[in-house]
């Protein structure tokens, strides 16, 4: 992995994003402002939802904010790379990048580094505002939180790699990002605890990595649980991350080889 190449691509994407000043400021403000209506809705639903989230912090507003922040990271990890590569294939930029000896892994990480970092910044802003509005995060559990967020990012970047591989080989992601985002949103415990969903759907949610990640993260961040108390969920998430990232790397490798054989690395 060439960190200089990753840094240079991140900087270029950052400069491009900030050149659209209004859009950049609006993106920051929107995430900040989103927290306010969530606060009032969560307060209204607290009496009903409180008992269901006893093991995940008890505060429905905190529950939702953590869910939203993590969900936005999941969306970026799953969807930004295939979208970016689809555009870059059509304008020849992908070919230009692969023609440089920086290496494919560095190029791929470099292409998504800025969106991921910006999403983390937006998430941090949301958490800061949530803290102002009374959410208490157990900052002493920062290492656990960091580990869980990293595993979530790795797992979902693996999905993004699979989708990107499909995009490179067949010019379609087969809607994998959309399916994963929808499934994660409804079954991963973003808006409500997985324990409150019907039993047969709950079975499906066991195949959603976000289920384990969010549950472990909320327990660490909102209920001050240490790693040993959330080990089961973290290990399951790590297994997902390992499998999905391995599959993603395999898919990318096969897709690039296929595209080189078929001559379809670019279509401009």
């Amino acid at each position: 992995m060439k960190f200089r190449a990753i840094g240079a691509l991140t900087r270029a994407t950052f400069l491009t994003a900030t050149s659209y000043r209004l859009r950049f400021v609006q993106a920051l403000l929107t995430s900040f402002i989103t927290v306010i209506p969530v606060f009032f809705v969560a307060r209204a639903l607290q009496p009903m939802m409180g008992p269901a989230i006893q093991r995940e912090g008890r505060d429905f507003f905190a529950f939702l904010v953590v869910g939203f922040v993590v969900m936005s990271l999941v969306v970026i990890c799953v969807d930004s790379l295939p979208s970016q590569v689809a555009g870059d294939i059509n304008n020849g930029f992908f070919e230009a990048l692969l023609g440089a000896p920086a290496g494919t892994p560095s190029v791929l990480v470099g292409l998504v580094a800025y969106p991921v970092l910006f999403t983390i910044l937006r998430g941090t802003l949301m958490l800061v505002l949530a803290a102002v509005l009374g959410v208490h995060l157990s900052l002493g559990r920062a290492p656990e939180m960091l580990l869980i967020v990293t595993l979530l990012a790795v797992a979902h970047f693996g999905v993004g790699l699979i989708a990107t591989g499909l995009m490179i080989a067949f010019r379609t992601t087969l809607s994998i990002p959309q399916v994963v985002i929808t499934a994660s949103g409804f079954l991963g415990g973003v808006y409500w605890p997985t324990s409150s969903i019907p039993s047969w759907v709950y079975k499906v949610s066991e195949f959603v990595p976000l289920t384990y990640g969010l549950r472990a993260l909320r327990q660490a961040a909102l209920d001050n649980k240490d790693l040993s108390q959330i080990a089961s969920d973290v290990l399951t998430l790590a297994a997902f991350a390992g499998c999905l990232m391995s599959l993603g790397i395999l898919a990318m490798s096969m897709a690039l080889s296929y595209a080189r054989r078929r001559g379809t690395l670019s279509q401009y």
Binding site: A8, A12, T16, N90, F93, P101, A102
Partner: peptide, 22 residues
């Protein structure tokens, strides 16, 4: 392809990016 350049960056910034990649 002219689209394989970053249009919102300057010529120098485009070249600096690729100098790092190379």
């Amino acid at each position: 392809s002219e689209r394989s350049l970053y249009w919102r960056l300057t010529a120098r910034e485009n070249l600096v990016l690729f100098a790092h990649l190379w």
